[in-house]
Each structure stands twice: as structure tokens, then as C-alpha cells.
Amino acid sequence: METLIIILAGILVTVSTYLMLSKNLIRIILGMSLLTHASHLLLMAMGGFKGNVPIIGDQAGEFIDALPQALILTSIVISFGVTSFILVLAYRNYETFKIDNLDKLWGIKDE
């Protein structure tokens, strides 16, 4: 199971990298969000699936290590904050420059 999750994370990282190297801001943001998922999956897989029960008294099956769960939760919340900020930044950018090709955006001179 761990191997499978790791490979899945790897594929997500690959896709995310490809998206982040594109010249469109939304695709970059999508890439960032995929990367976050990948990092969470990795945290989960690294902790292993033989962790302790998340809710005491619950029975059976495979569980994620409890500590990584907490870490992932924190990370999810943080990336939510970051994502919303950068989304709004992207929005402001489109609105200001009216360009969605970043290669062109970098070429704009100030003043």
C-alpha cells in the first residue's frame, strides 16, 4: 500500500512540476495545489499504515500514524490560507495587467 501511495505522490509531483513550469498563472496555482496533495500523501505514507488508532476505542484495520495526521491537518489549513491569498493575487493581476500569459507579463516595464 505504501509503495502505491508513494508512486501516486510521485505522479502528482510530476504533473505538478509540469504545470508549474507553464506560463499560465492558474495552471501554476493548480500545480501548487497538486504538490500540496502529494506532500500530504507522502507524509501519510512515510508514517506508515500501522499506526495507532486515531480514536481510542475504535477497532480494526489499517490506520495512519496519528502524528502525521495532525501534521497533515495543520498543513492543509496553512495551504488553504496560502492558496486563497495567491488566488486573490492572481485575480488582482489579471485585473491589473489583463494578461494571462506570464511570459508576456514579465516583459512589461514599470513606470
Binding site: 506532500s39 507524509l43 505514507a45
Partner: peptide, 13 residues
């Protein structure tokens, strides 16, 4: 930051 999380994941693992 994402790389940081991945690095932490590795080290924790």
C-alpha cells in the same frame, strides 16, 4: 514550503 513538508515527511519516516 511544499518541499519542506516533503523533507519533513522523509525525515519523520
Amino acid at each position: 514550503s511544499s518541499l519542506f513538508v516533503i523533507a519533513i515527511a522523509y525525515l519523520y519516516g
